[in-house]
Each structure stands twice: as structure tokens, then as C-alpha cells.
Design a protein around this nucleic acid. Structure first.
Lengths: 330, 330
DNA sequence: CTAGATTCATGAAACGTTTCGTGAAAATAA
DNA sequence: TTATTTTCACGAAACGTTTCATGAATCTAG
């Protein structure tokens, strides 16, 4: 009698051990109704043989893999890092695995990853992408973050317009009269762009005078320093408040301001966007409009795994909040 | 004549289209030698039908999946984020996909992920883990980062001892006479623990007097503030140099020092460990011992995918460097 | 007690690859 | 030309699941 050597037990082995049919084992493994005495014997056999399903055989037959791909520029900018973390968590909660695809903002790499993901038959893709011409097949569910990609592709984002508005209102509440909006340019028509319109709206409704400085492609942060210097009069900045499109930018701007001898928040108040926190304590690194990252993550996963494709809304906009982080007066 | 509806083309379809046998298509797809005229016809058919291999069928037959799992506590601490990024890159270069498993330092979750990864037959696992009792099966290759996990499991790390020594030597070179080492406790016997011994060694050889403050489990950063306050005399700190076990800790300590009215680096010089950089510019956020993350990543992937299991060294120690980041005098 | 309905374990077929023994055709040697 | 070797496309079998038609056993109804 030959024994099978050094090879993982299969359903067939379990079936033989338990003295039942193959299909019965399959049902037990998948939690389908099976007569109690059968179930018990199968479960015992599974334990005894330390059986584990082969997910490749499973994927081959069922076309379901319990795997999702996440496309994201990188893992080290705090907003992205937080998204990765929370999406991983939300997937884990549903027993899904996550394939991480760092795209480095490279449109070609984005496309390559999409093809790879689809070829490898993931159950769905969540993507924060920048390629305006990204080609998706019709069969793999896709959830976009921060960018509408067509009627069939739901987009999850925070309420960027309201966030911009909130920033303006906060600055007004904190006594500012003359503010600036700083932003890195983007030719892409994505949701975060709405921060600008929201901010303008807020300034107008509160009677703030404002200026904008939007960097063109290829211009460096130096331009911001020049912009600020142009707006100095007698060693004082004409702005008493600045809204930066991201916390990352805010940090750079704060450093520039300090280098110019200005005090934050005494001379200029600064508000960023995203909700970046320190590692040690959990304090915010600057006053900021906080994106609800856990909720964004949860919503993406929820929509991705939702069976009913018709019921998926084209755009989900989640509420933002203001948080004090030391760079404003409150 | 029935047409197959709405289903991805298979090798069989390609074979029929090209008028060749199934095995021939397989060879072409896998780059095995095939007669030129056959190859051309198959390649044309593949293009025409837009054929893509089904990686689940492939995985089922070959037990190779071109997927690796990365276990790591989180994605937002800079050192981890950087590792994730570079390991992803190194895997991509070899056409491997990466399953990201954020463990949040949870030993149970680490074990769960290992089981999941092995069940799903990844080709290998790279893990920066904290569970001293982690159970691995013998069949899935495993590369450990920063912790030796037994003779069969290669460990990749940077030269933590040399890094500690370098920190002491740098502080000595920059004029320090009386230094401190600050560290969060860890019951785990991992490689980064060697920073302490290296630092002591450096202090001794350079004749620096030194003190250590090592946090016990459950103690908060407040303890460091107390420690520092205990070492004040007439508004001056007795230490003129501090080595922090990570940059993250260094940032917190620097903030504490400033809150105490001390200037960095004029009154106290501070060196961290890891090599954290600012996002906007690429400057280091503090003077630091830089870990060679790209090389660590490359080495992990290299070792993981190396066929010859005998040739794998038990420990690979990569060189660190010192980098100026404004919190020392040079 | 019998006929019909219901329940549910059974096991063969199929999913899309890789692998490998087979034999036809081409190349070489005699 | 014929005999022998080499080359290489062929296609059946196998990987470990899921699914579903089948029929045995049980239950219900008359």
C-alpha cells in the first residue's frame, strides 16, 4: 500500500477519512447545510488531517478569490499611509486579502497594475489613480477614490468643497481679514480640486479678501516662497491667514514663514488639509481639515463587495471636520 | 453552431485559432523553445483574441503564484512605509505581486496572516514580526527583517551595533562629553536592540560618560520628560548629546527639549536612527543614522526568491551611514 | 399499506492550466 | 537510397476544487 508522501491533504483525503462523499466535504467547508452527523465527522477529519482549502483550485472553479487590489501612489505620505492601513483593516474584517500596488503617480505603471490585477482575477480594485486614460475591463468591480471615472465607477471622496469652505470660515472666525490659498496645480479634474471653489465661496460669504497661488506643472516650492515675499510690507505679511491644499504643503509653508521671521500662529494662521497626526502622541501636526479616512476606507470596501451593481451610487461624499493643531489661534 | 458567450478566451481557444496543440500554446506563453512558425502563429492568435493566462489554473498546476506576502506592523511609520515601498518595487521588478499584511504589532494577527498566506500558497513571506512564538510551516520560504527566527530563516537587518557606535563617535567628534541613550523597551531579542551595545561601546572607546533611560512596557513618553528634568542643573541639561533609538522618538524628545527652553543643537545635540526625510524637500528630519532601506528591500526579495535554500545565509547585516539633519552641529 | 413527494448525500464533470509519454517528420549517417 | 538518430509538436492526464443531475432513503397523504 503506497502512502501519499509530503503533500497537503485534499478534499478527497478528507472525504475518505470521514467516509463521506467529496461534495459533502465541500459543503461543510463552505458552510452549506449538511446533516449533523456528516458535518461532525467531516469536521473531525479536517482537524485530524489539518486540511486547508487550496485557494487556487477554489479560484479556478468559482472565479472568486477573496482578494482585492489597492492602487495608490505610495505608502509614505500620511494620507495614503492611513488609507492603506484602514482599507487593509476593512478588507481583513471581511476575510479579504489585499494586493498593494504602489504606482508612484506613474500612469503607465497604473495601467500595468490594472492589467495585472484583472489578469489575476482579483475580486475588485480600489484605486486612487492619476491616469486620465486608464482602461478598465467591464468585469472587474472598481471603486475610485477622489476622482470620478465615469458613470459605472463609484467614486468615494470626502467633502472637499465643504472642507474648503470650512477652512475659510474658520480663518474668518479666528479674526483673519486677508487670506491666501496655496495649491499645487493639477491638470486632472479630481475631487480635491473642489477645495479651491469651496474656499472662495467661504471667503466671499464671510467678506474675506483673498488671493490664490497655484503652482504650474514643473514649478517648485520656491515659487511659494517668492509669492510670500512679494506680499511682504514693512516686514509684515499682508495675509493673516493661509489655507494650504494639504498638510504636507502646510508644513513646508510654515517652515518658510518661520525662516522669513514670521510667527505662526501669532502673525499668520495656517490651515492644512488631510488630518495628519504626530506618531508619538496623537496630536495633529497643524491645524487642519480632517478627512474621515476610516469611513472612506469602510465605504470603499463596502461598495466594492456589494453584489448589487445597480445600487451603487456614483459619488459618495463624506463629511470633513476642523481640528486644531497649533498653527491657528483656536 | 454555438459561440461561447462572454467568457475569457482560454489556451484551448488560442490553440484552435492558431491551429496548434494546447501544449504549444503553453510553451509560447511560458517562453519555452518553440519552432519559429508556430510561435508566430500563436502570438498572433493571442493578440487577436486578447488572451490572458488564468493565474488560478496556473497556480493550481504549478504551485507557483508569483505572489509574496509582506507582514509589517503598519504602513505609516516612516521606516515601515519606506520598506513597504521598496519591497513592492523590488518584487515588481521580478514580476511578483505583493500581499500586504498590516499586523499592528498584534501577535495573534501575525499568526493569522501567516496561516492565511500559507493557505493561499504565496511563494514566500517577508516578515517584520514581533510574535516570539510565531509558527511557520516548513514549506513556505520566510525572510525575517530585524529579528533572527531560527537557523532556517534568514534575517536581513542593518548593522545596528555599528549604527549605535557611529552615533556615539559622531557625538564625540562634535564635542560632546556627556551623553544619554533613550529607548523604548522591548522584551523581544531583536537586532535593533544591538544599538544599545554599539552605543555603549562607542562611548567607552571615546571616553564619553553616558546614561541610559529605557522605558518599560506600559510606561509613556512622560518618563523621558521626567528623566530629562531630573538631569537639569541651573537651567542647563547635564547632557550635551542624546542618541534616540529611532527618529520618531528623536522628534518627540526634541519637542520636549524645546518646551524645556533648551536649544537644539546649540545646547543639546540629538541623533536619531532610521533616516526619516521630509516629504517636500528630501532633507532629513533630524540628524540620524540612516538605514539602507532600498538595499534591505532588495536583499529580502533576492533571498526570498533564491532557489538554492542551502545557500541562504542566516544573517545579512547591511551598512548604515550618518546623515546631518539640523539637530547636531554637523 | 401503498403511492407520491421530499430530502439530501453522492460522485462525475468541468474549470484552465502544466507536464510528459508518444510518434511523425526532419536530419544525419551508412 | 535506406537505416538510425534527433527534434519537437501533439494531446491526454492531472492539479483540487464547485456544481449539479441522480437516486436512495425518508416522510406525507390517502
Amino acid at each position: 500500500m503506497m502512502e501519499k508522501i509530503n503533500s497537503a491533504p485534499t478534499m478527497k483525503d478528507v472525504a475518505k477519512e470521514a467516509g463521506v462523499a467529496l461534495g459533502t466535504v465541500s459543503k461543510v467547508v463552505n458552510g452549506l447545510p449538511v446533516g449533523e452527523p456528516y458535518r461532525i465527522r467531516v469536521e473531525e477529519a479536517i482537524r485530524k488531517l489539518n486540511y486547508q482549502v487550496n485557494s487556487y483550485a477554489q479560484g479556478l472553479k468559482s472565479n472568486r478569490t477573496r482578494t482585492a487590489a489597492l492602487l495608490i501612489p505610495n505608502t509614505y505620505l500620511p494620507f495614503f499611509a492611513s488609507l492603506v492601513y484602514h482599507i487593509n483593516l476593512a478588507l481583513l474584517k471581511r476575510k479579504y486579502r489585499m494586493l498593494l500596488c504602489s504606482t508612484d503617480y506613474d500612469p503607465g505603471l497604473e495601467q500595468e497594475y490594472v492589467a495585472m490585477a484583472q489578469q489575476n482575477k482579483v475580486d475588485g480594485i480600489i484605486g486612487l489613480t492619476y491616469n486620465p486614460d486608464l482602461v478598465l475591463d467591464e468585469t472587474t468591480p472598481f471603486i475610485a477614490i477622489d476622482r470620478s471615472m465615469g458613470p459605472r465607477i463609484p467614486c468615494v471622496t470626502s467633502d472637499n468643497f465643504a472642507g474648503g469652505q470650512l477652512a475659510a470660515e474658520k480663518l474668518a472666525d479666528l479674526g483673519c481679514r486677508n487670506v491666501a490659498f496655496l495649491r499645487i496645480g493639477s491638470s486632472l479634474n479630481n475631487e480635491p480640486n473642489k477645495r479651491k471653489a469651496g474656499f472662495e465661496n467661504g471667503c466671499l460669504s464671510r467678506g474675506l479678501s483673498y488671493e490664490m497661488k497655484i503652482l504650474n506643472d514643473g514649478e517648485s516650492y520656491e515659487e511659494f516662497a517668492l509669492f510670500l515675499k512679494e506680499h511682504m510690507q514693512n516686514g509684515k505679511l499682508v495675509f493673516d491667514g493661509i489655507f494650504c491644499v494639504t498638510d504636507t504643503l502646510a508644513h513646508s509653508i510654515i517652515k518658510m514663514l518661520q525662516d522669513m521671521g514670521l510667527r505662526v500662529p501669532e502673525d499668520v494662521q495656517v490651515i492644512g488639509f488631510d488630518g495628519t497626526r504626530h506618531f508619538g502622541d496623537q496630536e495633529y501636526t497643524c491645524s487642519t481639515i480632517v478627512q474621515p479616512v476610516p469611513e472612506i476606507a469602510e465605504m470603499c470596501v463596502e461598495l466594492l463587495l456589494q453584489e448589487n451593481r445597480q445600487a451603487k451610487p456614483p459619488l459618495v461624499c463624506l463629511p470633513v471636520t476642523y481640528a486644531y493643531g497649533g498653527t491657528t489661534k483656536g
